[in-house]
Nucleic acid binder design. Structure first.
Lengths: 207, 207
DNA sequence: TAGATTGTTAATCGATTAACAATC
DNA sequence: TAGATTGTTAATCGATTAACAATC
């Protein structure tokens, strides 16, 4: 394995189950149990796969009845550590950065974005504070607020430099929106994200 | 296979190679050939994997020399159909929607986002037009402008309805940012995207 | 009991890696 | 020729699926 970041594909499906279960809980308050058969059908997945995933996450269901919705939600949240909220800052508050800054959904999955840093922090209104970028400020802020995730939305020319800075400050989890493959020590996790790349998968990978 | 959307993992790496090659072309104008060994090392990939990917996309390199940078870029762009630009509209111009609306990078990979639709199109300034949402307007716009991709950023309650509408208008490619697993005919491609899900992969999937 | 559903074991499939041959 | 590099074949690994047994 030459890259960091887990590939375990169960993690791609667990949030889908979680979201689905929460929706059922809201829209069908009378439903207490849900079968893997139904979930599979409505989520367009194989039913054996759903059962295998659930058995790994939340132990067992009841034959002829299914899985307890509430317990399922609780178990998946535990498995995904959703309740273990981590604090994050965004470096680079351009278009994408500011969208992420205001995207409260993330908190449901364990990430609380508390502030942003940008070379130009003027004239912008967000619901979270945005500070002027300076190494000293970032250092102080990260230490004072127990930040342990950094979201990188900076231009690619400065990506590796900013990365080196935050790694030197002890950050171990980086959500990387730049197209650069960051060089980091082996104990630092980098999750690469790139919407442009998704586009080419969508447009070329099919048909 | 119960889902649409390709899984072929080569498509995840091709944009990485492409981006890398373009960067080398810019920063080292004297470099004409690049070896799979070097690419692998700098991109943290296996060298055999790089060679296999390249052999699929662009035929062959030269032993002891490597692959022609220019030809590599050209071949990958062809393989990814980057030059075959498709027009897209965004439905739902909230925070994320407006970030995507202004994200010109996408065009490099074959997607030109030309307009947005929202129930509330007032008081917002974008560099692309945003129209008030109405079924009739969307229909006319899509037909008049040969739109063939729709980017869905609507609230989840209306996701399936909006989806049904655009499918009825003949749209065959949907980039879905809602957490709903859309039900579509088998000839429609849905690419599901969800930043919140990526977070849980990052936070739970590791350590 | 019969039937719906869960749970497990074995088979398949695809992607990655290792080993090595071919080329300039 | 020696060495760097490409290209291919076989082995491994992991994820998915199929078949079936177990349970209520």
């Amino acid at each position: 394995m030459l890259q960091n970041a887990t590939k375990k594909s169960i993690y791609k499906r667990l949030p889908i189950y979680l979201d689905y279960c929460k929706t059922i809980l809201e829209t069908e308050p009378e439903t207490k149990y849900i079968s893997s058969t139904r979930m599979a059908e409505e989520l367009f997945l194989g039913e054996v796969q759903v059962r295998k995933d659930l058995s790994k996450t939340c132990g067992s269901g009841k034959p002829k009845i299914g899985y307890s919705l509430k317990y399922l939600i609780q178990s998946i949240e535990e498995y995904l550590k959703c309740k273990d909220i981590r604090k994050a800052v965004i470096i680079g508050v351009g278009k994408l950065g500011s969208a992420i800054l205001g995207f409260d959904e993330l908190k449901k999955y364990g990430l609380d974005v508390i502030a942003g840093f940008d070379t130009n922090a003027e004239n912008k209104k967000y619901n979270k504070p945005v500070y002027t970028y300076s190494q000293e400020k970032i250092k102080t802020y990260i230490e004072d607020n127990n930040v342990d995730v950094v979201i990188m939305c900076v231009p690619k020319k400065v990506a590796q430099d900013v990365c080196n800075l935050i790694v030197s400050l002890g950050i171990k989890i980086i959500w990387n929106f730049t197209p650069i493959r960051l060089k980091v020590p082996s104990d630092v996790i980098v999750q690469n994200e790139n919407l442009a790349y998704s586009v080419s998968i969508m447009l070329a990978g099919n048909n």
